[in-house]
Computed example of a mutant assay.
Amino acid sequence: MYMKKFKFIAFIFAIMTTTLILQSCLDDNDGPADLLVISTINKISQDSKDFYFTLDNGEKMYPNNGQEWNSAEFAEGQRAFVIFNELETPVNGYDYNVQVKQINEILTKDIVEMDDDENTEEKIGDDKINTTDMRINKDNKYLTIEYQYYGTHSADKKHFLNLVIPKAEAAPTTEDGSGKDEYINLEFRHNSEGDYPQTLGEGYVSFKLDKIKDRMEGKKGLRIRVNTLYSGIKTYEVKFP
Rank of each mutant, 00 (worst) to 15 (best):
K157N: 12
S154E: 14
I145K: 09
N130I: 08
I124S: 10
N140C: 08
D176T: 01
E187W: 03
A155E: 15
G194F: 00
E146I: 03
N137E: 00
Y147D: 01
K141T: 15
H190G: 06
L163E: 02
D181G: 07
I165L: 07
E187Y: 05
S192H: 04
T173L: 09
E121N: 12
D139L: 01
G177W: 05
T132E: 11
T144E: 14
I124V: 08
I165N: 02
N130A: 15
S178T: 12
G194A: 06
Y149E: 10
I129P: 05
S178I: 04
Y147N: 06
K128W: 09
I165P: 00
H190S: 06
D195Y: 03
N191W: 02
I165W: 02
T152N: 13
P197I: 00
G179P: 07
K157S: 07
G151I: 03
I136N: 04
D156Y: 05
H159W: 00
M134S: 12
E182T: 04
K158G: 08
M134A: 14
K180F: 01
K158W: 04
N119C: 11
K157W: 08
H153R: 08
E175L: 15
I184V: 01
S154L: 14
P197L: 00
I165A: 00
N137W: 03
D116L: 10
Y196L: 14
D126Q: 12
F188Y: 06
A168E: 14
R135H: 13
S154N: 10
A170T: 12
L163G: 02
I129R: 05
G125F: 02
S154D: 13
E169M: 11
Y183Q: 06
Y142V: 07
I184M: 04
F160D: 15
G151E: 07
N137M: 00
T132Q: 06
I129G: 07
N140D: 02
N140V: 13
M134K: 03
E121I: 07
G125H: 04
S192Q: 08
I124E: 07
S154A: 09
K157D: 14
T152I: 04
L163D: 01
F160A: 14
G179M: 12
Y147K: 11
N185A: 06
H190D: 04
F160K: 15
I136S: 02
G177A: 10
E175P: 00
Y196H: 10
D126W: 01
Y196V: 13
I145C: 15
N137T: 02
K138D: 13
T152A: 09
E193D: 15
T132H: 05
Q148K: 15
F160S: 14
T131N: 10
L186W: 04
E122K: 11
Y196C: 08
N130R: 13
L161R: 09
G125C: 07
Y147P: 01
D176I: 01
R189S: 11
S192M: 07
E146Y: 02
P197V: 04
T132C: 08
N191S: 07
D127P: 03
D176S: 00
E193A: 12
I184K: 01
A155H: 12
K167C: 04
N162D: 13
R189L: 09
P197G: 04
K123S: 09
T173H: 12
T152L: 07
T132D: 06
K157Q: 10
S154T: 11
T173R: 13
K141S: 14
I145M: 15
F160H: 14
N130M: 08
L186Q: 01
I129E: 00
I136T: 02
L161Y: 09
I124Q: 12
R135F: 07
Y183K: 03
T144H: 06
